[in-house]
Computed example of a mutant assay.
Amino acid sequence: MTVTSLPGVRLRRVTVDGTGLNVATAGSGPAVLLLHGFPHTWRLWTEVIGPLARRYRVIAPDLRGFGDSDRPADGYDAATLAADAAGLLEALDAGPAAVVGIDLGTPPAFLLAMRRPGLVRRLVLMESLLGDLPGAEEFLAAGPPWWFGFHAVPGLAESVLVGHEEAYVDWFLRRGTLGRGVRPDVRAEFVRAYTGGEALRAAFGPYRALPAGARQIREAVSGARLTMPALTLGAHPVGRSLERQLRPYADRLTGHVIPDCGHIIPLDRPEALLAVLEPFLAAEDDDRE
Rank of each mutant, 00 (worst) to 15 (best):
2 T>N: 14
3 V>S: 15
3 V>Y: 14
5 S>L: 14
8 G>D: 10
10 R>Y: 11
13 R>K: 11
14 V>D: 06
17 D>G: 13
18 G>L: 12
19 T>G: 10
20 G>L: 08
25 T>V: 15
29 G>M: 07
33 L>S: 06
35 L>D: 06
37 G>T: 03
38 F>H: 14
40 H>I: 04
41 T>C: 06
43 R>G: 03
46 T>L: 05
47 E>R: 14
47 E>H: 11
47 E>N: 14
47 E>T: 09
52 L>S: 02
53 A>M: 10
53 A>C: 07
54 R>W: 07
58 V>K: 05
60 A>K: 01
66 F>C: 11
74 D>S: 15
76 Y>G: 09
77 D>L: 07
79 A>S: 12
82 A>K: 08
83 A>P: 09
84 D>E: 08
92 L>A: 04
92 L>W: 08
93 D>G: 15
94 A>P: 12
97 A>N: 07
98 A>H: 14
100 V>T: 09
101 G>T: 02
102 I>R: 05
105 G>R: 05
107 P>W: 00
109 A>S: 14
109 A>E: 03
112 L>H: 02
115 R>W: 08
117 P>A: 04
120 V>T: 09
125 L>V: 09
126 M>K: 09
127 E>G: 03
136 A>D: 00
137 E>R: 01
137 E>S: 00
138 E>S: 13
138 E>H: 12
142 A>R: 13
143 G>I: 08
145 P>T: 05
147 W>C: 10
147 W>D: 13
147 W>L: 13
149 G>N: 10
151 H>G: 11
153 V>T: 10
155 G>Y: 08
157 A>D: 01
157 A>L: 04
157 A>V: 05
158 E>I: 04
164 H>T: 12
167 A>E: 15
169 V>M: 14
170 D>V: 08
173 L>N: 02
173 L>A: 06
174 R>M: 15
176 G>T: 05
176 G>I: 04
177 T>R: 11
180 R>N: 11
182 V>G: 00
183 R>K: 10
184 P>G: 04
184 P>D: 03
184 P>F: 02
185 D>N: 03
186 V>P: 04
187 R>G: 03
188 A>Y: 01
188 A>C: 08
189 E>A: 15
191 V>D: 00
194 Y>W: 10
195 T>A: 07
195 T>W: 06
197 G>P: 07
201 R>W: 06
203 A>Y: 05
204 F>I: 04
206 P>Y: 01
208 R>W: 06
210 L>P: 00
215 R>E: 13
217 I>M: 00
218 R>S: 09
221 V>A: 00
221 V>Q: 03
225 R>P: 06
225 R>A: 11
225 R>F: 07
228 M>A: 08
230 A>I: 08
230 A>H: 00
238 V>P: 06
239 G>C: 00
244 R>K: 15
245 Q>R: 05
245 Q>N: 10
248 P>Y: 01
249 Y>A: 05
251 D>F: 09
254 T>P: 06
254 T>N: 07
258 I>A: 09
259 P>V: 03
260 D>Q: 09
264 I>V: 15
265 I>Q: 05
266 P>C: 04
269 R>D: 08
270 P>F: 07
272 A>D: 13
272 A>S: 10
273 L>A: 03
273 L>R: 05
275 A>S: 13
277 L>H: 04
278 E>S: 12
278 E>I: 11
279 P>W: 01
279 P>E: 00
283 A>D: 15
284 E>S: 14
287 D>G: 09
287 D>A: 14
